[in-house]
Design a protein around this nucleic acid. Sequence first.
RNA 1: UCCUCGGUAGCUCAAUCGGCAGAGCGGGUGGCUGUUAACCACUAGGUUGUAGGUUCGAGUCCUACCCGAGGAGCCA
Length: 431
Amino acid sequence: MAEKVYIGDIADHAGKEVAVTGWLYNKRSSGKLWFLQVRDGTGLIQAVVFKGSVSEVLFQRCEEITQESSITVVGTVAEDKRSAGGFELQVTDLQVDQVAQDYPITPKEHGTTFLMDHRHLWLRSSRQHAILRIRHEIVGACRDFFDGRGFTLVDAPVFTPNACEGTSTLFETEYFGSKAYLTQSGQLYMEAGAMAFGKAYCFGPTFRAEKSKTRRHLTEFWMIEPEVAYMDLNGDMELAEDFISYIVKRVLDNRRPELEKLERNTEALAKVVKPFPRLSYDDAAAILKEKEVEFEYGSDFGGADETVISEAFDKPVMVHRYPAAIKAFYMKNDPDDPSKALCVDVLAPEGYGEIIGGGQREDDLSVLEAKIKEHELPAEAFEWYLDLRRYGTVPHAGFGMGIERAVSWICGLSHVRETIPFPRLMHRLTP
RNA sequence: UCCUCGGUAGCUCAAUCGGCAGAGCGGGUGGCUGUUAACCACUAGGUUGUAGGUUCGAGUCCUACCCGAGGAGCCA
């Protein structure tokens, strides 16, 4: 009985007879020969069937198997330059586990809508493998980074009773006779985590009911949110640049083949090392003025503005101290200029835009109470949050990074929809 | 919600001035002993998004609607 092996480990079995279980990716024939491309999730290998060296029945079987049929192939592992990957399987036996019927995704081109309708099958193709393996690497790197720095994972709830930053973008749901909302940020809960553990982070899905139809938006996306007690805005920016440098390096170190598959320019990624340029909002506005971009001082930067700012550098750019008026109620105002907030956005290079938003939080009880009133938020909903200022308040800061935007940038994709296994978009809830 | 573009075979697309709806892939049949999205020959496959209108004649022009994509606003 031949040993069952994974294609990813095939090089360790050269010269031996092994069994590979998987699916037929593609096949070609040449009269007395069949070339079967077999995939098993760990890789792709060409299995060669010579008419002369197998039974008539077995050779006939090759004729019958269709794309994505499940098969078990037994054969000898042989090094061969003519085969992509350097190795091929010289088949001695072939078992058909199921003949797949009319697989919809053919080796030729398809449109995005069609592929998204078949997302559950699209995941089988090599490009999607590369993207999702890089996502996997990034998620692992995020966890390792914070775990390695003594952070405690404190997961935030998905059901929340109140809005974090207003109610317009929340998904509402019925909750035993009252209303609940799907979380749009774990931040307020992470502030509780930071007051309990000093350094805390959460990582989970968040939901935004924004009617945004762009290459940067999902209605459900994953966010990692660290929060640190006794840390100010400068510390926050240092943490952000260390963090991004780390995850980019991890992908460069461990996922070269996947980046190559995606034809990603790795030289651009190799430049992502700290320190990152730091610009105040005023500095950034000055760049826009210099480049003669139409921009109203005091308002937020649009996507096109962010691209102009980030194109001036070849690393992620940290833009800090936005006007307080356009930022959330929990942001602390700059003591040196109270019209500005102690916040930071990290803009990814190459036009990918904002991947991180964060800042130092307001730690003074009375100021925070005044801000809640100013923003016309329901005070009673924030009573627990105000407790964090009543019982041992300290300066603290944190940020949130959208995983899909980071993956999209690092992979060099044109749309975030391929960075998550089953994307949820304004016009897509299936599969 | 607004702006722009699109909807033709299972899939990706073509169809000139309004004049016979076509190709590649996939399916089927046959061929080929080293293919790399193999190739060659043959073959089946259509209510041109929906409903109206103009016209001798509409995939093509007009009106309304439906669906989708990109972008704006908003955001990670």
